[in-house]
């Protein structure tokens, strides 16, 4: 599913070059839930951005679904993100002017699909995620947990191959956080979805099948997660 080989990413900060990833290789099979942990500056967000086709590596190759995405032009990257990826962010990143259901269908609308065919599906998803009757609420009328569930629905609506989550519980209290994690886990398993989740919360990381540890732009640990006792 994901084949990362020898990826290097260097940022330029003024005159300085800041290495963010220094030769990372990683293979993630379909359906695996991969947690990536590391302290800030370890390169975990950079890895996620590269996987999310938001950024391109300085060197190395990055294949998703057998496609070498690191050399895609911008428009193709956009299309790729739209069709194949789902994102969940720490700050939910819902559009404040749109209702819950509108936020959910947004990526598909961007893909040019028609709203009428999307909405029933989106409403169904929201219902499944415990947001029955809340689909015409705007983000400022929802709690943090609810907003993140809307974001998860948004990420899943297009039936992507890969779900990327960036600290999805970072902005939630621990109870809501674990509910959200449980939801992600169940929803992705049911769909046999590959998940890459970046976090610095060890408890959150345990939800995954496998835990990769990053430090200073290198992989320093790669273990299967033991099923919690």
């Amino acid at each position: 599913m994901i084949e990362v080989s020898n990826v290097v990413k260097v940022y330029r900060r003024g005159k300085n070059e800041v290495p963010a990833l220094q030769g990372v290789s990683l293979t993630v099979p379909r359906g695996q839930f991969l947690s990536v942990m590391g302290s800030s500056g370890s390169g975990k967000s950079t890895l996620l951005n590269l996987l999310g086709a938001l950024d391109v590596p300085t060197s190395g190759t990055l294949k998703i679904d057998g496609k070498e995405i690191s050399r895609f032009p911008d428009d193709e990257l956009s299309r790729f993100r739209r069709d194949r990826l789902g994102f969940i962010f720490q700050f939910f990143n819902l559009l404040p002017t749109l209702t819950a259901v509108e936020n959910v269908v947004l990526p598909e609308l961007l893909a040019g699909k028609h709203r009428d065919e999307l909405e029933p599906k989106a409403k169904l998803l929201l219902e499944q995620f415990g947001l029955k009757g809340r689909h015409s609420h705007r983000p400022d009328e929802l709690s943090g947990g609810e907003m993140q569930r809307v974001a998860i629905a948004r990420a899943l609506l297009s039936e992507p191959a890969l779900l990327l989550a960036d600290e999805p519980t970072g902005n939630l209290d621990s109870r809501t956080g674990s509910e959200v994690l449980k939801l992600i886990r169940e929803a992705t398993r049911a769909r046999n979805l590959t998940v890459v989740m970046v976090t610095h919360d060890p408890k959150a990381a345990e939800v995954g099948d496998r835990l990769v540890l990053l430090a200073d732009g290198r992989i320093v640990g790669d273990d299967p997660v033991r099923v919690a006792a």
């Binding site: 999310g52 938001l54 911008d74 428009d75 956009s78 299309r79 993100r81 739209r82 069709d83 990826l85 994102f87 962010f89 700050f91 990143n93 559009l95 947004l106 990526p107 961007l110 893909a111 948004r154």
Partner: peptide
């Protein structure tokens, strides 16, 4: 940030 989000979920330029 909103532009970033839209781009992330697939909006092209």
């Amino acid at each position: 940030r909103e532009i970033g989000l839209l781009r992330a979920v697939g909006a092209d330029r």
